[in-house]
Write a protein that binds this DNA or RNA. Structure first.
Length: 117
RNA sequence: AGAGUAAAUUAAAUAGUCGCUGGUAAAUUCCGAAAGGAACUACGAGAGGAAAGUCCGGGCUCCAUAGAGCAAAGAUGCUAGAUAACGUCUAGUGAGGGUGACCUUAAGGAAAGUGCAACAGAAAAUAACCACCUGCGUGCAGUUUACUCUGACGCAGGUAAGGGUGAAAAGGCGAGGUAAGAGCUCACCGCUGUUAUAGUGAUAUAACAGGUCAGUGCAAACCCCAUCUGGAGCAACACCUAACAAAGAAGAUUAAGCCUGCUCGGCGCCUUCUUGAAUUGCGUGGCUUGAAGUAUAUAGCAAUAUAUACUCUAGAUAAAUGACUAUUUUAAAAGACAGAACCCGGCUUACAGAUUUACUCUAUAU
RNA sequence: GGCGAGUUAGCCAAGCGGUAAGGCACGAGUCUGCAAAACUCUGAUGGUGGGUCCGACUCCCACACUCGCCU
């Protein structure tokens, strides 16, 4: 397994959030932008301070990252992806299965799944 | 059985599969001149009682190796002890609350000085406005045998009993006493002081004395007294690397500067100050062995201290602990508060469920 | 992570141990044929909870929220 590389700098996040395309599920939102390096996907997770306290924010991050690992082998490369949590949704709904459904929705809309025969 | 008080513990466990962080070890592959770096494999490790708030105190780093005195600013404030230190803790004292177990308590000084006490009220602090009483006076009023009596007014004196207030009214209440009154005198209660006894001490108990007990309250108003405090903080600080633009002023032994002011003392000498410009990096160190933890013994009421033995127990940087399956515990459901960021000792705040120990009250039975 | 400042009516905002000034806006009334302007009136748990005090927006403590700074 390769490491999943992360977005780190503030300006990178701003680029993706302003110029990327917007997709939404029930709990999760995503911004996706094409990247110059075609072999790598860069992942970023940003959850606002006002949504919940630190433990819940950490748990949501972990769940999103775990789901992304499961999907990573079937996705196309060469994109920057930033996931956000919707403000109006309660943090108690952040379970593994809810996030799995949303991530499948988003990747189908964005047509990021590799078409397998 | 019900209701309650105090203290302490725990914060689900086990196995398997996939995945993450850093550590150790050997071999292989790739990059590189080398040092080394990356990938892969194995081993063992990997969030809390509050990690939180940042409210106090220390270590550590820089400012001089952080020194002396005065001032300013700030903190604490019953007693004794513990501690590296503390505004913390332990054991007591006083005051207040509770039937009780027990709980709460920033609790020095108002006789060093200044200030404040709105409204109401006679008066809010050197008491005396109304009032009560006595004496004298009046070409005053009424009255009488009579300056005889009463009243009014004026002057001189005595007193603090009474006066719809107010948070607070000049020790309380009763008796005697008096022209009227008053701790003026007395009994009881309170208050103050001295002595004795007990205690390391705060203080307690008892006896005696005190009526100038007529300087009321507020110090969480300024303040006084006692004790204490140099400043900034790991984004400190040191190093590597990238980028940029300089201009003005001052000083060089009559000495700039050294992070509150002044004085002394010290360091130190070609730089210092102001404005402007630049401010890059999956950078490196600081970064975890420490007033450390566990167990036992001894001293102490306790906080805690000492000795011996054993152990090494997170160090990330968009930030590591997750997901799935099975079993057990439970009546049922893995659920509360919550995520280390240099490290310790405390305080405060949030918190579902469960367990243990000691004790109190009420009711019933023996 | 560390350091610091603040919270008063819908908005802006003063003051201070003793009945919380004022302006804009909202509402009601006067005026007008109807409006505007003008005039009059109305509205406050002082972020929340405790303590000191006779009395707290003010003084002290704790908590909540908002904002700023660090090379």
């Amino acid at each position: 397994m390769k490491k999943t590389k992360m977005l780190k700098k503030n300006y990178e996040f701003k680029n993706v959030l302003t110029k990327g395309k917007y997709y939404s599920g029930d709990c999760i939102e995503a911004f996706i932008q094409t990247n110059k390096n075609k072999e790598i996907n860069l992942l970023g997770i940003a959850i606002g301070v006002k949504i919940a306290k630190a433990t819940k924010r950490n748990k949501i991050k972990r769940l999103i990252r775990e789901n992304y690992k499961n999907c990573e082998n079937y996705t196309k490369t060469g994109n920057n992806i930033v996931f956000l949590w919707k403000k109006k949704v309660d943090t108690n709904q952040a379970t593994f299965e809810n996030i799995k459904k949303d991530m499948n929705k988003i990747f189908k809309k964005a047509k990021l799944f590799v078409e397998e025969e």
